[in-house]
C-alpha cells in the first residue's frame, strides 16, 4: 500500500508534465482516479489549486461524468455492459441478478468493501454480449443464472 504522499507526488508529477494546464482537467482526473481509486474532495481541491481553477469547477466535472467516482471502490469492481448489443441480449437481467445477490444497487459498494457494482456502455466486445468485466477481466455471454458462480470466484480474493 502506497502512502498518501507518494500518491500525491505521482499526481503532481503528472500534472506538472502537462504544465499545470487547466484544459487538461479531465486527463488529470483520470490519472488521479487511477492513483487513488476514487476522487475525494481533498484530491479535487489539490487538483484545483494545482491548475488554478476553483474546486467547484472540478466538482462539476467529476459529478458530470459517470466514470468518475467520489466514493472509494470495492476490492472487486464489476462492470456490467448495458450497451445496445448487451442490453438486447439480457444484460439488464444480469445486472439485476448482481444487485440481488450483492444486496446493493448499481453504482454502490457492498458494506464489506468487497464489491463495487457499476454499469457502462459498450466495451467493444459485442460478439460476446452480454459482457461483464470484473477487475478488467472479461466474461462473455453471461447468463443471469451464472452470476452466482462468477461471484463465488471473486468472493475470497
Amino acid at each position: 500500500m502506497r502512502t498518501n504522499e507518494e500518491m500525491f507526488a505521482e499526481l503532481d508529477e503528472f500534472i506538472e508534465s502537462l504544465n499545470n494546464d487547466p484544459e487538461e482537467l479531465i486527463a488529470i482526473l483520470h490519472r488521479a482516479q487511477g492513483i487513488f481509486g476514487y476522487l475525494p474532495m481533498v484530491v479535487q481541491k489539490h487538483i484545483a489549486n494545482k491548475i488554478g481553477v476553483n474546486v467547484s469547477k472540478v466538482y462539476g466535472v467529476v459529478t458530470f461524468y459517470s466514470f468518475f467516482t467520489m466514493v472509494p471502490k470495492g476490492e472487486n469492481v464489476i462492470n456490467v455492459c448495458l450497451g445496445t448489443a448487451c442490453f438486447v441480449r439480457g444484460s439488464q437481467q444480469v445486472l439485476e441478478k448482481f444487485e440481488e445477490l450483492l444486496k446493493i444497487k448499481n453504482g454502490h459498494t457492498t458494506e464489506d468493501g468487497k464489491f463495487t457494482l457499476t454499469s457502462l456502455r459498450c466495451v467493444g466486445a459485442c460478439a460476446l454480449a452480454p459482457v461483464v468485466q470484473i477487475n478488467g477481466e472479461t466474461h462473455g455471454k453471461v447468463k443471469a443464472s451464472e452470476v452466482a458462480s462468477i461471484l463465488a470466484k471473486y468472493q475470497n480474493n
Binding site: V53, N54, V55, S56, K57, Y59, G60, T63, F64
Partner: peptide, 26 residues
C-alpha cells in the same frame, strides 16, 4: 459567481434530471 466575481464558489454539478447547482465552496 464565476464571470463577474471570479469567486467560483458554485458550479453546475451532475447531469440530466439530477443536475444541481453545487454547494458553495469558499
Amino acid at each position: 459567481c464565476n464571470a463577474i466575481q471570479s469567486v467560483g464558489a458554485i458550479s453546475a454539478s451532475k447531469r440530466g434530471f439530477a443536475t444541481v447547482i453545487s454547494e458553495p465552496n469558499n
